[in-house]
Design a protein around this nucleic acid. Structure first.
Lengths: 229, 229
DNA sequence: ACCTGAACACCGTTCAAGT
DNA sequence: ACCTGAACACCGTTCAAGT
C-alpha cells in the first residue's frame, strides 16, 4: 500500500482554505489569540506550512480583511442617492458585527486591500452618480471615515455588561468626581431603548451620527459648496 | 567605603519616572517596539523592577494615556459655546499629534482612565452650559467619538509619502480598476493645499467633519430635538 | 526541489532562590 | 522583607538538514 489508510487524507492547503480558517478561528477565539502557530494547529499542519500561502502574518491579516469586506452586499439596484448609500453602509455594519475583530484589523492596515479599494470605489461612484462634485465627495469620504464600513471609533469599548446593581453603585461613586458623565449614563440607563435597559444603544448612535453627516452633505451639495475658490 | 563611587547613583524609580520614560520611548521608537524589557533597559533596571510600579503592561499603557491626556489644555476661560468646544478639541489634536501612538493606545483601552473621564466630564459640561439637553449632549458625544480627542479613524493610514513620479505611475495603473478613487486622488494632488502638493490635508479634513457635526448639533438644539417622545 | 524540525531572537510574567 | 536571575510558556520567522 503506497498510502496507509489510517493516515487521514487531509484536504490540501490552499490560500483560500487558510483564510477561511483564519476568519473562523478569529471569530471563535478572538484576534489576540490568533497566532500563526495556533492557526496551523487548527488546520493540522506544521506552522511553516502556512508560509507557502502567506508571506508573513500581515499578509494573512490583509487576506482576512478582504474576505470580510467581500461579504458586504453590492449596492441595491433599486435605491438611489443617499438612501442607497445609507442602506449599503448599514449592510456593511451587519457584516462587520459578525466579525467583531475586523474593525480593529482594518484600522491597523497601512495600505488599502483590493476589496477595500473596490468597496470605496463603488461607494464614491454612488455619490458621483447622485450629482456630488469630486471635491465634496472627497471630503465626505474623510468625514465618514470608518463609518463607511459600518463601525465608528468610540473613545473606549463599551464596558462589558455588569450587574445593574454593581453598575448603579459604580455610578454613585463617580457622581461627585464626574457629575456630567454620570448624568448622561443614568439617562441612557432609563431610556429603555437598549435591550437590557442599561448602557447605550449602539445602533441608534451609529445611525444618529451617520444621518447627521449625510444631512450635512446634502445641504452642502444643495448650495453648491466648494472647498477652494 | 559603604557605597563605591564608581557605581552611578541612579535616580530611584518612581511610577511617574516610569511613565515619563515610557511616553518618551514610545515617541522615539514607536509603540510596537515598546516592551517591558526595552523600557527597563532604557531606565537601567532589571525588567522585573518595573512590576513594582505597574501591575502589568496594560496598566503601563493606561498610565501613558493619562499622561498624554493630561497635556490637553483646560477650556479657555474666555470662549463659550461651540467656539470653546471647537478650540479645545483642536488643542487636543495638537497634543495627540505630538504622540502619534496615543490614538491607537486610547482605542485599545477597554475602560476609561481617570484623565479621560475628567476630560469627557468637562467637555460634556461645556455642552450643558451652552443649553444642550442631557439627551442631545449624549448623542453628540457618540457622534464626535474619537474626534473629541482630536483624531478620527480613517479607513487606512495615509500611505507614507512616496516620490511623486512613483505615485503618479501607481495612480495610472489603478485608473481602470478604481476610476472613482483615482479621480479623487488626482484632484487632491492638484489642490495645492497640502504641503508637498500631494495627498490629503489631514487638518482640513478634520475640521471639515468636525464643523459638519457641530453645525448639525446646533441645528438640532435650535429646533428642540429629542431622541424619544 | 520540496518540506519541516530545530533554532533564533524576541515577548510578558511567574516563581523560587538569594540577600 | 525586599530584590532579581532564571525559567516558563508563548511569539513570528530563519535556516539548514533531511527526504
Amino acid at each position: 500500500m503506497t498510502r496507509p489508510t489510517e493516515t487521514p487524507r487531509r484536504t490540501p492547503l490552499s490560500t483560500e482554505r487558510v483564510l477561511r480558517a483564519a476568519v473562523a478561528l478569529a471569530d471563535t477565539i478572538g484576534i489576540e489569540a490568533l497566532s500563526m502557530r495556533r492557526l496551523s494547529q487548527e488546520l493540522g499542519v506544521v506552522p511553516m506550512a502556512l508560509y507557502k500561502h502567506v508571506a508573513h502574518k500581515e499578509e494573512l491579516l490583509d487576506g482576512m480583511v478582504d474576505a470580510v469586506v467581500g461579504e458586504i452586499d453590492p449596492p441595491r439596484s433599486g435605491a438611489q442617492g443617499m438612501t442607497a448609500v445609507r442602506g449599503r453602509i448599514l449592510s456593511a455594519r451587519r457584516v462587520l458585527s459578525r466579525h467583531p475583530w475586523a474593525s480593529r484589523v482594518i484600522e491597523s492596515r497601512t495600505a488599502p486591500t483590493p476589496a477595500l479599494l473596490a468597496y470605496m470605489d463603488s461607494m464614491i461612484g454612488m455619490f458621483r452618480a447622485d450629482g456630488y462634485s469630486v471635491d465634496l465627495t472627497h471630503h465626505a469620504m474623510h468625514a465618514l471615515g470608518s463609518r463607511l464600513l459600518g463601525f465608528s471609533q468610540e473613545l473606549f469599548d463599551q464596558s462589558p455588561d455588569v450587574d445593574p446593581g454593581v453598575r448603579e453603585a459604580g455610578l454613585r461613586a463617580m457622581a461627585t468626581a464626574y457629575p456630567h458623565v454620570v448624568e448622561i449614563a443614568v439617562r441612557a440607563d432609563h431610556d429603555g431603548r437598549s435591550v437590557v435597559g442599561q448602557g447605550c444603544d449602539d445602533q441608534f448612535e451609529f445611525e444618529f451620527s451617520l444621518d447627521l453627516l449625510l444631512d450635512g452633505f446634502e445641504r452642502l451639495r444643495a448650495r453648491g459648496w466648494r472647498s477652494t475658490g
